[in-house]
């Protein structure tokens, strides 16, 4: 009982995850600044931002539906944190595990996007509504390649259980190399999920102010910001667990450090991509996802089926 509560609330649950995701945000922003030849924010910047937002007045527009407006950020926050508990962190066993948990993690990561839609829709501001509709439209474009990319790796392992995926790749050490195209697909789709630069159409600041977040202020906005950071870390952790499943049998401390390094590496790739690219239009984004990412994901699945049929036979 106490152990479960400790795991959920302190380590590796809520507290650790919040601190680590804020650090990941710092890493992302600092790298972004350095790549633009700037000095960048100091290390405590994300902490100061969140603390300031938590202490600010929260305004609820009089035309908004107060209950939905307040609940949406909390739903998003909870779903993103819950998803983390099913991912193998630095050893093969996860905190909670059952058959099909990789799908549950993927669906839990969909809930924040849905909550952004609901929050934006119920704030009844024009900008927020346009942003919400855009984030839903975008969801249908990136979600399919993301699922196909991640599940192709699970297909090779012949299981939809993250623990057994880790077990399979520990038994077949170099098989994760077959999944590298799938990793690229999932990484690009993750950029869409996190609403980062080439796909930041839902919160395009120069067009629609801040998208679904336009009317949010104070504590509620702090939760939304934290949700995006946590989503980044959880998404990176899921990619690390599925596509880089090595080093899980080392001693706990070394494994933990390796796990953090894997996540930081994926965050590094995400910031690099968002620095070198500019925002697409929504139709270009959907074209790109359906015309290039989905066929590539099919190729990856075919490759994995071939590997299964020829090498593993």
């Amino acid at each position: 009982m106490f152990k479960d509560l400790f795991q959920i609330l302190i380590f590796p649950g809520l507290t650790f995850l919040v601190i680590f995701s804020l650090f990941a945000e710092y890493f992302d922003r600092k790298l972004y600044a350095r790549l633009q030849n700037r000095v960048g924010p100091p290390w405590f910047q994300p902490f100061a931002d969140i603390l300031k937002l938590l202490a600010k007045e929260e305004l609820i527009p009089c035309e908004a539906n107060p209950r939905m407006f307040k609940l949406a950020p909390l739903f998003a926050f909870t779903a993103a944190i819950t998803a983390f508990l099913y991912i193998p962190l630095w050893q093969i066993k996860t905190l909670f595990s059952f058959n099909g948990d990789v799908l549950v993690v993927l669906y839990l990561l969909t809930i924040p996007t849905l909550s952004f839609f609901i929050g934006g829709w119920y704030s009844t501001s024009l900008f927020a509504r346009i942003g919400s509709v855009r984030s839903m439209t975008q969801l249908f474009a990136y979600e399919v390649p993301l699922f196909m990319g991640i599940l192709s790796s699970a297909l090779l392992a012949n299981t939809w259980n993250l623990k057994e995926i880790a077990l399979f790749y520990s038994a077949h050490p170099w098989f994760w190399l077959f999944n590298l195209p799938g990793f690229c697909i999932a990484l690009i789709a993750l950029l869409g999920k996190l609403e980062k630069v080439p796909f930041d159409i839902p919160e395009a600041e120069t067009e629609i102010v801040a998208g679904s977040f336009t009317e949010y202020s104070g504590k509620l906005f702090a939760f939304l910001k934290l949700t995006l950071d946590i989503e980044m870390v959880v998404g990176a952790a899921l990619l690390a667990a599925v596509f880089f499943p090595f080093g899980l049998q080392m001693n706990p401390f070394a494994g933990f450090v390796l796990f953090l390094l894997k996540i930081i590496f994926i965050v590094f790739l995400l910031s690099l991509l968002r620095t070198v690219m500019a925002r697409l239009r929504i139709d270009q984004m959907i074209d790109f996802c359906w015309k290039y990412l989905v066929p590539l994901a099919f190729v990856q699945i075919l490759l994995n089926l071939a590997v299964k049929g020829v090498i593993l036979k």
Binding site: E205, V209, E215, Y216
Partner: peptide
Amino acid sequence: LKGTPRHAD
């Protein structure tokens, strides 16, 4: 720089 007065100080 923020786009909306709700986020600004």
